[in-house]
Design a protein around this nucleic acid. Structure first.
Lengths: 156, 156
DNA sequence: CCTTGCGCTGGAGTGCGCTCCAGCTCCTAC
DNA sequence: GTAGGAGCTGGAGCGCACTCCAGCGCAAGG
């Protein structure tokens, strides 16, 4: 807190933290035209005004929902044309919205598939049967409940 | 239809068509342990029995919902252990289910963000204003409605 | 017998989307 | 004045998940 809060502009670090992107990714997005060029402070560093931070959030939402880099680039390029491109920008967003709706349907279907499989395992274990419908021996049944030795995420 | 329908087993091509994976991807999945080794016909070709086709569908659902290849591999490896690994397999699926639920929440949030932005553009256009709240000139307004020259997807 | 078609294996190549780095400039604090 | 820390640029490198290919075998049709 030693610096003067220049109006309401934030540094790249904070934008990174609030957007979920890395600092490197933010710079890369800018170089690649996925973000407009951020204005620089007198020391040559990026100062993100509030509007731009909001824009970053939108771009993150677009990328996270699977919009390819090329399409984001196009969207940003349109933004340079000002009000004249509002219609086309809206159209791009609408296409993305359709895509998100399809993804939601797909995700719901996949959730159901996984859920059914879980239920299937639950039943098999409860009934003491293996996948072929044969009863499991007690020693195997004991192994089934090993409280999830869990995938050894702690290696390396 | 010149071949005898060997029980209820299908060739790799049909599995590809029904699963959405490419033939190459199916073979690659098998080599990499994301699918159990498919039994071969007398000519050395893969013959997928029904159970395996169902398994492929599950694996596709897991991958599509973002389960990393390494985790799928682990799941498949567990399947080799038979009934003794039911509990652990179920645990893996449950973790994936949690992940899907989080994705659904994120997707809904992103859909809302995109939706709001669309609404914003709609209002601006209807009101004849640009992003700074200034009225647009009539010639610009005309450009806004260019019926979506649409991203030129037909290049190359 | 020869061609056509599908599939096989194993390995090399590819596209995307970052991530990492060297070498530099600024500030700020001690 | 010098040490440390954050940021800058441009370019190289990388991990993932396939995709593509050469070189082969087999079986059926003409």
């Amino acid at each position: 807190m030693t610096m003067v809060e220049t109006a309401t502009t934030v540094g790249i670090r904070e934008v990174a933290e609030h957007s979920g992107l890395s600092v490197d990714a933010l710079r890369w997005y800018e170089r690649e035209g996925l973000l407009p060029r951020a204005p620089r402070g007198p020391d040559g560093r990026r100062r993100y005004p509030e509007r731009l931070v909001g824009f970053v959030r939108l771009v993150v939402a677009l990328r996270r929902t699977g919009m390819p880099v090329a399409d984001v680039r196009e969207f940003v390029a349109l933004a340079d044309d000002g009000a004249a491109s509002h219609g086309r920008r809206m159209a791009l967003l609408e296409r993305q919205r359709e895509s998100i709706l399809r993804q939601q349907a797909q995700l719901a279907a996949d959730l159901a598939a996984v859920g059914h499989k879980i239920e299937h395992y639950r039943e098999l274990i409860a009934a003491g049967l293996d996948c072929e419908g044969l009863p499991v021996t007690p020693d195997v049944a004991a192994l089934q409940c090993l409280p999830t030795l869990q995938t050894e995420r702690n290696a390396s």
